[in-house]
C-alpha cells in the first residue's frame, strides 16, 4: 500500500464521513430511513452549480447557502410529509421518502437534464506535493471542510441546548418528555440538520467530481454502508464508517478492480448487519 493510496483513501473517506453523518443522524435519532438523502446531496451540487454559473461564486462559499436551503427543505418535508406518515410504520416512511426522492430527481431532470455536470473552479487541477505523493488541492480543501463540519456538528449536539435536547430524546424519549423536551421539534431539527449536511456534502462533491441524477443511487448506496458500519445516530461512528469505506474502496479498486468496489462495500454492510447490528463503534443508540 503506497503513500499515494493512503492519501487518496483519507481524502475520499473524509467526504464519505461527512456524507454519512446526516443520514446516520436521521436514521438513528429521528428514526427515518431517508431514501431521499441521495437526491438531497445531488440537489446541493446543483444549487452550487447555478450559483457558480450566475454569480461566479465559489462552491466552497455557496455551500453555506446549499446547507441553509436544504435545512429549510428538510424541515418542511419532515413537518408536512414525513412526520404524518410515521404512524403508518416503516413501509410508509420508506415509500414517502422515496416519493420525495422521485420529486426532487424529476425537478433536477427537468431543469438540468440527465447530463453529467461539473463546476470548473480556476484552481481545480492544482496539486501540491507531500513527500513523494501528490495531493489534489480541491480534494484537500474538501477534506478540511468536512473535518471542521463534523467537529461543529459534534459541538452542536454536545454543547447547545437544542443539541442536548436531541441527545435526550434519542437516549430516553419518555424521560426527555417528562423534563419538558419537545420531542417532535427535536426530531424535526435533527432531520433538518441531516438534510443541511447533505446539501453541503453536495456542494463539496461538486468541486471534485461530476454529478448528474445518476449519482443519486451511488450516494444512497454509500450512505447506507457508512451508517451501518458506524452505528446509527453516532457522529464519530459515521465518521469512522466513512473513513473505513474510503479505505476499502480505494484498496478494492487497486487490488481487485474498480468494478468490485461496490460489491465489497455492500457485502461488508450485510456482514456487519448480521454479526454486529449496532455498528463497529458498537453503542446502541435507539431501540428497534
Amino acid at each position: 500500500m503506497s503513500l499515494q493510496m493512503i492519501i487518496n483513501a483519507i481524502l475520499l473517506g473524509g467526504l464519505y464521513a461527512l456524507m454519512g453523518i446526516g443520514f446516520s443522524l436521521q436514521w438513528g435519532i429521528s428514526g427515518i430511513i431517508n431514501l431521499s438523502y441521495g437526491a438531497m446531496v445531488v440537489l446541493g451540487s446543483y444549487i452550487s452549480l447555478i450559483i457558480f454559473d450566475v454569480f461566479k461564486i465559489d462552491p466552497f462559499i455557496s455551500m453555506l447557502f446549499s446547507g441553509f436551503l436544504l435545512f429549510l427543505i428538510g424541515a418542511f418535508a419532515y413537518k408536512f410529509i414525513i412526520q404524518p406518515s410515521i404512524k403508518g410504520g416503516i413501509v410508509f416512511t420508506l415509500i414517502i421518502t422515496f416519493a420525495l426522492r422521485l420529486i426532487v430527481e424529476n425537478l433536477i431532470l427537468y431543469i438540468w437534464s440527465a447530463d453529467y455536470r461539473t463546476i470548473r473552479i480556476s484552481y481545480a487541477g492544482r496539486n501540491f506535493q507531500f513527500l513523494n505523493s501528490f495531493v489534489p488541492l480541491t480534494k484537500f480543501i474538501t477534506f478540511l471542510i468536512a473535518g471542521i463540519l463534523i467537529y461543529f456538528t459534534h459541538l452542536f449536539m454536545m454543547n447547545t441546548k437544542i443539541g442536548k435536547g436531541i441527545q435526550a430524546v434519542s437516549l430516553d424519549k419518555i424521560g426527555a418528555l417528562a423534563v419538558g423536551v419537545d420531542d417532535k421539534k427535536m426530531y424535526l431539527i435533527n432531520f433538518a440538520v441531516g438534510t443541511a449536511l447533505a446539501g453541503i456534502t453536495g456542494s463539496l462533491w461538486a468541486t471534485v467530481y461530476s454529478f448528474s441524477p445518476h449519482v443519486i443511487d451511488v450516494i444512497i448506496g454509500r450512505v447506507f454502508i457508512i451508517a451501518i458500519l458506524g452505528g446509527l445516530g453516532n457522529i464519530w461512528g459515521a465518521a469512522a464508517g466513512g473513513m473505513l469505506l474510503g479505505f476499502v474502496e480505494t484498496c478494492g479498486a487497486t487490488f481487485l478492480g474498480a468494478h468490485w468496489q461496490e460489491a465489497i462495500g455492500l457485502a461488508m454492510m450485510v456482514l456487519i448487519l448480521l454479526f454486529r447490528p449496532h455498528g463497529l463503534m458498537g453503542k446502541k443508540f435507539f431501540g428497534q
Binding site: I33, I90, F224, I225, A267, M269, V270, L273, P277, Q288
Partner: peptide, 11 residues
C-alpha cells in the same frame, strides 16, 4: 424492521 429491509438491499 429496518435492518431486514436494508440487509436485503445490500444483498
Amino acid at each position: 424492521g429496518h435492518y431486514f429491509a436494508i440487509a436485503t438491499i445490500g444483498m
